[in-house]
């Protein structure tokens, strides 16, 4: 998933998924809910889109907040 911060809201874009929420925690819940389907992935890698940071700042942090979400997938 690609993570963006646009117009004061967090947005996650991925395969067939476009979700947004004002709080990152809320977005995490939406992502896990979207993937918690039988046969879905158990881990979702969320990668921050660095275009959201000014260019001069990127050298200080090459990934900003990339993280991995664990999804409890129901048995298929």
């Amino acid at each position: 998933m690609e993570l963006r911060f646009e117009s004061g809201r967090w947005r996650a874009l991925g395969p067939g998924v476009d979700l947004e929420h004002s709080e990152l925690r809320g977005l995490d819940a939406l992502i896990t809910a979207a993937f918690a389907v039988p046969g879905g992935p158990s881990r979702v890698h969320v990668r921050f889109d660095l275009d959201g940071l000014p260019r001069w700042l990127r050298q200080y942090h090459a990934h900003y907040c990339n993280y991995v979400l664990r999804v409890h997938t129901p048995p298929g």
């Binding site: 911060f5 967090w10 990152l24 921050f48 959201g52 940071l53 942090h61 990934h63 900003y64 993280y67």
Partner: peptide, 13 residues
């Protein structure tokens, strides 16, 4: 500042 922002998942602004 930028590392802490990432670590605590703060809004990039």
């Amino acid at each position: 500042a930028i590392v802490t922002g990432g670590a605590i998942r703060a809004r990039p602004v």
